[in-house]
Design a protein around this nucleic acid. Structure first.
Length: 566
RNA sequence: GGGCUGGUAGCUCAGUUAGGCAGAGCGUCUGGCUUUUAACCAGACGGUCGGGGGUUCGAAUCCCUCCCAGCCCGCCA
């Protein structure tokens, strides 16, 4: 039912409805048969009875820093793949590196292979300016470590997927063009270019008689030309004649060199609106998730092109809402991005995977500041799973279905330290002390195995990194050496007295009370005495609840420190 | 301007399929513990379910309308 105003008939049509009810990209709207969205999507795919292997695709243009939002292209498909594998299907999950796309503007931020975001000043940026308009795979890697710009950022995306432990197969678009995989579909589109033009014209006003669904790469300057560059098509020879003309790229114009040449089907690319359907056909794609930016634009036209021009069926679609980062949209140019690599320094992989199990149809904020909330949520999710499991509860709710997909083995229940408590433990480097404190707070059961304890304490490093990164209320560090401090006489006496109390052996709450007591006896404001304590132990003005914390530490050390002896 | 998607407690989110008491965690407050120092436990507070109208015995849920945000309707992807 997609149609637009037909200029000749003057009819007005509803632009919003797609051709086929199966083409609605908001697949998760309304009635869903399962609690976990991926199961519901798997149902839809199943119903079409696709042949094995079922192909699930995502696609990312390796244009720059691959941030967390980009990972939707891979992570969302993964859960659907897992749901289908559970049903005994063979699934091939791929992502296309859309690396034949031309560089249209110079990115302000890049990232090295370790995921460190850097400004342009730190790389050979001049080379980038000279390469505007060329495919990413034809541009040298500014870091000099990979074969090309495109290979560099594809590599980063692959690493992100590996870190999330998602098995995904990379398909380089450039490689497919050069190997001839797209030849047949290009030939078909060029042969039916009039029909192709007419169909696309229903979605894009600017499609005119000059429009050719193929963009040759200029043999002279290397630019990807516009859709009006082709002057003639020779289907038998498999070539096109073209003139290298200017290309509009947003505000600026990338100048063409005027070269007149001949290009084979290997030496160009399809415009995106045709490239996407071509990928579906060539790769046999059965399911594809995509961001909401595609939902009203390239998806409806792509589905129509697939049915009308390619005489094929488009994949099952799924539009997903975008993430924000700490309340703001991701912005590579502004440096407001976070990569999987960064996230995995303060979150366990299973927690990040859990984040992607949430309903894709809702806009969602990824908050670094409140990472503890996400971890708490994950821990509850995990508890739900194991509690149901223990009851032999057969309910296939979200936790029951999704949990096994996000952990390596859902058989052993891990010991989980609350994340913020782990952050408190991170105030000391002493691993024995960490364990002692965790045991005292009964976060570790007495009969826990050594490996289970070690695994549980693994969270401390994550939480520690989080505390440092956000510089939040948990970012205190036990000072190993005596900080450079000087106190008034009363304070010194009070501290000595406290040292005596600690030496005599008291529990945390007693020490806590004693601090107040001692302060009063010496006519000090309790707050000042606490501050003195924080200075001594953390070299800060504030810190964790002091009495219980000191009680956990080595007694001799505390006494010595209170006496300013070391 | 038109269309699509989203809007539920201070925060992060369930609940909307199929109308049936407004939910969880965190935060806050109070207490556990005569004393402000972020870990633990208990309890309490916290809501115009974006606003308004309609249908209904009954609406977060269905319908209409308006507001806000994002996206698409140019190029590009």
């Amino acid at each position: 039912m997609v149609s637009v105003t037909d200029p000749e008939r003057g009819e007005s049509h509803d632009f919003s409805r797609v051709e086929d009810v199966n083409d609605d990209p908001y697949i998760l709207a309304g009635s869903q048969p399962h609690d976990f969205w991926a199961e519901s999507v798997a149902d839809v795919i199943d119903k079409r009875e696709p042949d094995d292997p079922i192909v699930i695709k995502g696609g990312i243009s390796p244009s720059g820093v691959p941030h967390l939002g980009n990972m939707n292209e891979i992570a969302r498909g993964y859960f659907v793949a897992e749901a289908l594998r559970e049903r005994g299907r063979t699934v091939r999950q791929i992502f296309t590196a859309d690396d034949r796309d031309p560089l249209r503007k110079i990115p302000r931020k890049l990232a090295d292979l370790d995921g460190n975001v850097v400004g342009l000043g730190e790389v050979d940026a001049s080379a980038l300016g000279r390469n505007l308009g060329k495919p990413y795979t034809a541009i040298p890697d500014p870091f000099g470590c990979c074969e090309s710009y495109g290979a560099h950022f594809s590599n980063l995306i692959e690493r992100s997927a590996e870190l999330l432990e998602i098995p995904v197969e990379t398909v380089s678009n450039t490689e497919r063009y050069e190997s001839g995989a797209f030849d047949d579909v290009i030939r078909h589109l060029l042969e039916h270019r009039e029909q192709a033009r007419n169909v696309l014209g229903q979605y894009q006003e600017k499609v005119d008689d000059d429009y050719i669904p193929f963009r040759p790469i200029c043999a002279e300057c290397g630019h990807v030309t516009e859709t009006d560059a082709v002057r003639s098509v020779d289907l038998d020879a498999g070539t096109v004649e073209y003139v290298c003309t200017d290309v509009e790229a947003g505000e600026q114009t990338i100048e063409g060199c005027g070269h007149e040449g001949t290009a084979t089907f290997h030496e160009g690319k399809l415009p995106w609106r045709f490239e996407w359907p071509a990928q579906w056909q060539v790769l046999g794609v059965d399911f594809e998730p995509f961001g909401k930016d595609h939902a009203e634009g390239s998806w409806p036209s792509g589905a129509d092109i697939t049915r009308t021009v390619l005489d094929d069926s488009p994949p099952v679609p799924m539009a997903y809402e975008w993430f924000t980062l700490d309340g703001e949209p991701f912005s590579s140019s502004a440096g407001h991005v976070i990569m999987v690599q960064d996230v995995l320094e303060f979150l366990e992989p299973e927690v990040l995977r859990y984040f992607f199990t949430k309903d894709p149809s809702r806009a969602r904020d990824f908050s670094i500041e409140r990472a503890d909330q996400l971890v708490d949520e994950f821990d509850r999710f995990e508890r739900t799973y194991f509690d149901e499991h223990a009851r032999e509860d057969e309910t296939m709710d979200e936790a029951g279905t999704a949990y096994p997909m996000i952990v390596e083995a859902a058989s052993d229940r891990p010991i989980r330290l609350p994340y913020t408590f782990a952050a408190v433990l991170g105030m000391t480097d002493d691993s024995e002390l960490r364990e002692k404190m965790a045991r005292r707070q009964e976060h570790i059961p007495e009969d826990a195995s050594e490996s289970a304890v070690e695994a549980a304490l693994g969270r401390v490093e994550y939480a520690r990194t989080w505390a440092e990164r956000t510089d939040n209320a948990y970012n205190y560090r036990l000072a190993t050496d005596l900080p450079d401090v000087s106190f008034g006489g009363d304070t010194r006496q009070a501290l000595d007295e406290l040292a005596g109390v600690v030496e005599a052996g008291h529990d945390g709450e007693e020490i806590q009370s004693e601090i107040f007591e001692t302060a009063r006896e010496h006519d000090l404001d309790p707050g000042d005495l606490f501050t003195a304590g924080y200075r001594l132990f953390f070299d800060t003005e504030q810190g964790p609840k002091l009495g219980p914390f000191l009680a956990e530490l080595d007694r001799e050390f505390v006494v010595r420190r209170l006496r300013r002896e070391g």
